[in-house]
Computed example of a mutant assay.
Amino acid sequence: MPTKFQVFRGQGLSMEDFEKMKKTKGGLMSFNNFLSTSRNREISFKRFARPATNNPSSVGILFVMNIDTVICMKSSTPFAEVSKVGYYEGKEEEILFSTHTIFRIDRIERIPDEHTDRLWQVNLTLAGNQDDDFNKLTAHLREEFTWVTGWGRFADILIRLGESQKAKHLCKILLGKATSDKQRSDYNLQLGTVYYNMGEYSKALSSYERSLEIKKIALPPNHPNLAASYNNIGLVYYNMGEYSKALSSYERSLEIQKIALPPNHPNLAASYNNIGNVYYNMGEYSKALSSYERSLEIKKIALPPNHPSLATSYNNIGLVYGNMGEYSKALSSYERSLEMRKIALPPNHPDFAQSYNNIG
C-alpha cells in the first residue's frame, strides 16, 4: 500500500447535520464508529451516496479522504485492508478505520447531477498530532473521559449515547464490586445521572446524595467536584418542582465555585442561569433578571460572540421582561437571541420556533 492514498465513503446525511458540517468547513470532524471506506469511487458514489438522495430529508455525501500512513502511525490511528472479507468480494477494496478517526474538512462542493441537487462531495484530510487543533481536541477528549477509568469510562460512554438501561445495569455491577470510596462516589454519580435521564428523580437524588456524602469526607470543603454534586442535586429538585430546595443546592454550588474557579469561568455562568430559572419559576422576576444578566455578563467574556448559549441567555431575559410587562425590552432581547441563532444554528433547528413564537 502506498504511503499516501485516497479512500471514499458514500452515505446519507440529514439536512440539519449537513448544514452544521458546512458551518465547520476548515474544522475537524470524527466518525463515532468503525469507519468503512473504499478505494473504489464508483461503488461509494453509485451504491451509497446517490441512493441516499431518495430520502427527501437527506443529502447524498461522497467523502473523499486523503490518507497519509505516516500520520496514521504517529497519531496511533489504526486501519486495515479488509477487501477479502468485504461484501463486494474484492471489488470495493474496503479499508476499515478505527472509531473516532479525526479528519479536517478541506472542501465542500456540489456534485452536478441531472436528477438531484442534493449530491455533495466533501474532501477530508486525515488529522494527526502535527495538527494544533487535533492536539487540543484529543486533550479535551482525554480530560472528558479520564475522570473515571476502565469499565467506569465505558459506563460514561453509554450514558452519553443515551443507553440508559445498559448504563444502569453496568453501574450497579460496578457499585457492587467497588473497592474504594472514590469508585463508590463515581459510580453513584453515574447511576444518579442515569436515573435523572430516565426521569426517576427520587432515585437520582438518592444516588447523587450518596456520592456527595463520600466526597465531603474525601475532598477539601471548597473542591470544584463538590460544587458539581450540589448542582446535580439542584437539577433534580428543580425537575421535581421543589424550587426552594433547588435554590439552596444551586446557591451552595455557586458559593464553592466562587472560591474554587476563576471569576469568569463558564460554570459560574451556568450556576447563575440555574438560579435564574428557579426564581423565574417561583415568580420572583426581578431576582431572575438579576441572575440571568449576571450569567450573560460572564458568557460574554468566556464564550465566542455568537455562541448559542448567549442566545439562550437573551431569550431567558426576554421571558422575564415579558412576564414583568416590559414588552419593548422583551422584544429587544428576543430579537437579539434570534439574530445569534441565525448565525450559530442550522436553519431548521427547533430553537427558531421558540424565538419566532416569543416574538409573535
Rank of each mutant, 00 (worst) to 15 (best):
K182C: 03
N316C: 03
L137A: 01
I102S: 00
T37N: 06
W147M: 05
I214L: 07
G176N: 12
F48H: 07
I105F: 04
I159L: 03
G192N: 07
N316W: 04
I111V: 10
K300C: 05
H169L: 13
I111K: 02
Y314W: 10
T116Q: 06
G60R: 01
N225S: 14
H169Q: 13
P350C: 06
R294G: 03
S248M: 13
P224M: 12
L141S: 03
P305G: 09
I343T: 15
Y356S: 14
A269T: 05
K287L: 08
T77I: 15
E213A: 14
S271E: 03
G360P: 14
T99V: 06
Y356E: 15
T24I: 15
V64R: 10
I259E: 12
S286L: 13
R153M: 00
K203R: 08
S229I: 10
H265G: 05
P263V: 02
R118E: 02
M65V: 13
S253V: 12
P221K: 11
E200Y: 11
D117V: 00
Q183W: 07
R153T: 07
N55M: 04
R47I: 07
N277G: 11
Y272K: 05
G325S: 11
Y272C: 09
F145A: 00
I256D: 08
N357A: 10
K203C: 02
N264E: 09
R336A: 15
L35G: 08
A167E: 05
G360L: 14
T146I: 00
K84F: 15
N54T: 04
R104D: 06
R252H: 14
S207F: 05
T37D: 06
A80V: 15
D156L: 04
R50M: 04
T24G: 10
N323F: 09
V122D: 04
A269D: 05
Y230F: 15
